[in-house]
Design a protein around this nucleic acid. Structure first.
Lengths: 235, 235
DNA sequence: TAGATCAGGTCGTCTGATGACTTTGCTTTG
DNA sequence: CAAAGCAAAGTCATCAGACGACCTGATCTA
């Protein structure tokens, strides 16, 4: 029954929805949007509301509205990547990047313990099992690692944290591209130990123990950082 | 020659006119614009046209439109139009916003405990003393509160965290602009209790006790959230 | 005095009507 | 047959009236 507890005004809501379709690639530059009337029907709002949303997106340079012709997706203003994530550019060093990661990941672990659903647990288990099955596959191991941390962020069911983690993770991997790669999974022993740590984190999330999940994640990241320190000169 | 004489659409024309008044200083940050009805009369167009123009300017971050309250000129964004923080728009609800805040602030508290300098401590103490001296000044109390949390973020010496906190904090206050205001400092008792909590957090930071600083910050925010829940219906 | 109530101002949205412009497909014409 | 002409449909642009939601400040009441 409690269907509408929307903190956002309808026009903002529509604008966000459309903005998502633009950035997520569901709509590509050059594509034509449905007519105002159709959009109004689709989102269950009036035409004025749609027009306000479109005007806002147009003001941001995302849309091209042609009278009588329709509404089209404009080519992104060239440098979206740079300006978009301004906060990331504040990083003076990899060390700071890792600190932010620690903050976000421990927080995610705690929130995941609080909000995780059964489906989240299943997904986490599946990833853990895959990791166990292919302990010696270095490339796969790293991908699964990334995926596991993504899933933990996903288990918070908080879109902002997921976005933040995703962006940070990309930047982190980019920063370490040269040095990181596979050293981490080079030994069976390391991979095995990592798996144990991951399991214990997931276990805490399963048990809904926020503090434990957070601290285990913290310790895990500290160890990763330590290895990074020992095996490479980048810190 | 440039045949750029295509007649501007009314809404664009109005948006340009208003934009000029903003950038030319004829309207300064904080100023209140005429009502939609008045603007419509002034420019000889319909209300929808005015609203589309306002929506566009709002999308560019130039205006603050408050339902029932009027339209106000926003402080010009430091980083011009393009420094939009995409991650913030992912928020579906105030609850999620508060969760992110908890993650960031507890993390900041821990990192502040690790990295704080003597100068940071002095600044924190100064703010605490001011809060103590003016326990009954509600407006000042709130400003000092914001400042204290900013200083804690600053004590991490991590520009990314400072940026994230600043952006989040602005958004949070905007979201709660309506309901928050001064209820929190309305009673001497509340202000006094808050001061104690803040002192204990700073104390943990001084002692370089990361875990303690983090948990105290967490408890502090939980209490704030509880008050928010009790005193207002917005959660 | 503190809280409840009320009224006026203002934003938020829907809707029907009308005009302007673009696209498209069909028809006319050389 | 092909090109020009034309009419209809599709779509954006704008207006005006009506209502609801929300904020503020003044008034009333316990």
């Amino acid at each position: 029954m409690s269907m509408n507890e929307r903190p956002l005004k309808s026009n903002e809501w529509v604008a966000q929805k459309l903005h998502l379709k633009l950035t997520s690639g569901e709509l590509s530059p050059g594509d034509k949007l449905p007519s105002v009337v159709d959009l109004a029907a689709e989102y269950g709002v009036g035409r004025s509301t749609i027009r306000e949303a479109l005007s806002a997106l147009k003001a941001k340079g995302l849309l091209d509205i042609r009278q009588g012709g329709g509404t089209y997706v404009k080519a992104p203003p060239d440098e979206p990547a740079f300006a978009q994530e301004a906060w990331l550019d504040r990083a003076d060093s990899l060390l700071q990047l890792l600190d932010v990661r620690k903050v976000l990941e421990t927080g995610c672990a705690a929130l995941a313990a609080k909000h995780r659903s059964e489906a989240d647990l299943e997904a986490l288990d599946a990833t853990l099992n895959e990791m166990a099955d292919r302990l010696d596959d270095e490339i796969f191991g790293e991908q699964a690692d990334v995926r596991l941390h993504e899933q933990i962020a996903g288990a918070t069911h908080n879109p902002m944290l997921m976005e933040l983690m995703k962006t940070l993770s990309e930047r982190l991997h980019e920063s370490m591209r040269d040095t990181r790669s596979l050293w981490f999974y080079a030994e069976h022993r390391s991979a095995s130990r990592l798996l144990d740590e991951h399991r214990s984190i997931v276990s805490a999330i399963r048990g809904r123990d926020e503090a434990l999940a957070s601290s285990r994640m913290g310790q895990h990241l500290a160890k990763v950082e330590q290895v990074l320190r020992d095996k490479t000169g980048i810190l």
